[in-house]
């Protein structure tokens, strides 16, 4: 997911007997589906985990501009260009809401940015894959935004108020993105032979990386259990991945495209598809920096940050001068 393999702080779920009075009150509020607000008391581990999770989600929105931005200047029609620009603008906006939500936990956007740029924080593995043909822009909307929605719809109910509210705003826009992506795929799948080939090629390359977005199985993870007890994680990774496959396979069939998985078949008993797992060694390699675009993505972000320093400094200096002039006039 956009927030993927977030390390939960602490040592796992505490029993009631192990909790302090404050911790027990806090857990009661969560169990009662009350929202936790910035000024409320919260366990430090809850705060630390949320900062990692929201920060990683925000970084993903920001880095996620790059693979799509890669096609803005080559979009094939004015309308497609406008739609793609609007989408990428939305993603930057999502980054902004999420950084603001993280700031309510006591960490600044600049601090988070530095942690991204020096490698202490991550972004979703999916954005380390390249966009190579125009259908990739369709596939990203359909599959990547689609997978994001799977995870983010339940997070609208997450226990931390500012995060939950950010998710509600974001989810509305993500479903637009998914529909627009699918619309591109539709045009391509119904198009010329070359366009069909592009569409199939895009699905071939994005299928397994999309499944990886949910992270490896965490049904036995004590960390995930803690995040679920805090309601900052609502479903297990496997549950979400299954839902995603069940939703997506019929959509691929409708497009006349082949999901690149020979093991894929309907399992009537469980009421869902059986499917092959992605190559998890590839996933771990990508997280460690060994994906097709890790270097490029980080170099782009570092360059934007460094080249932009004089702009940020200039605007700050001007702001200070204006303040000073206002004071002098008063």
């Amino acid at each position: 997911m956009y927030a993927q393999m977030v390390k939960t702080a602490g040592t796992g779920v505490k029993s009631r007997a192990e909790m302090s009075a404050e911790e027990a009150r806090f857990q009661d509020r969560i169990d009662d589906d009350q929202k936790i607000e910035p000024k409320d008391w919260m366990p430090e581990d809850y705060r630390a985990t949320l900062i990692r999770q929201i920060g990683q989600h925000a970084h993903s929105e920001i880095v996620g501009q790059l693979p799509e931005g890669n096609w803005i200047t080559r979009a094939p029609t004015l309308e497609r260009k406008a739609i793609l620009l609007a989408k990428v603008q939305d993603e930057a906006g999502h980054g902004l809401y999420l950084y603001s939500a993280a700031e309510t936990l006591g960490v600044s956007r600049d601090e988070l940015t530095e942690m991204l740029l020096d490698g202490r924080m991550k972004y979703s593995s999916i954005f380390n894959y390249p966009t190579l043909n125009w259908a990739d822009i369709g596939a990203v909307g359909w599959l990547v935004d689609g997978a994001a929605i799977m995870n983010q719809v339940p997070l609208q109910r997450t226990s931390y108020g500012p995060y939950s509210r950010a998710m509600i705003r974001i989810c509305k826009e993500e479903s637009f993105h998914q529909r627009q992506g699918y619309d591109i795929m539709m045009k391509m799948a119904q198009g010329t032979d070359a366009q069909k080939k592009m569409a199939q090629d895009a699905l071939n390359r994005f299928w397994y990386p999309s499944l990886m977005m949910f992270g490896p199985s965490d049904k036995d993870s004590v960390h995930s259990a803690q995040s679920m007890a805090w309601k900052i994680k609502i479903n297990t990774n496997d549950e979400l991945r299954q839902k995603f496959v069940d939703q997506t396979v019929p959509q691929a069939e409708y497009l006349g495209l082949t999901v690149p998985d020979e093991g894929l078949c309907w399992n009537a008993e469980k009421g869902g598809y059986d499917f092959s797992q992605p190559d998890w060694s590839e996933f771990f390699a990508v997280l460690k920096g060994g994906g097709p675009c890790n270097r490029e993505r980080m170099n782009d972000r570092i360059k934007a940050w460094e080249d932009g320093a004089w702009v940020r400094d200039g605007l700050l200096a001007h702001g200070r001068k204006k303040q000073a002039a206002k004071h002098a006039a008063e």
């Binding site: 920001i62 501009q65 790059l66 931005g69 803005i72 200047t73 260009k81 620009l85 609007a86 990428v88 603008q89 930057a92 906006g93 980054g95 902004l96 950084y99 956007r109 782009d300 360059k303 934007a304 940050w305 080249d307 932009g308 320093a309 702009v311 940020r312």
Partner: peptide, 18 residues
């Protein structure tokens, strides 16, 4: 539109895309 994702601050990315 060539700036997309490469601006000095997030607000500028949004403004330039807009």
């Amino acid at each position: 539109s060539e700036w997309c994702g490469h601006s000095p601050v997030l607000e500028e990315d949004i403004a330039l895309a807009n």
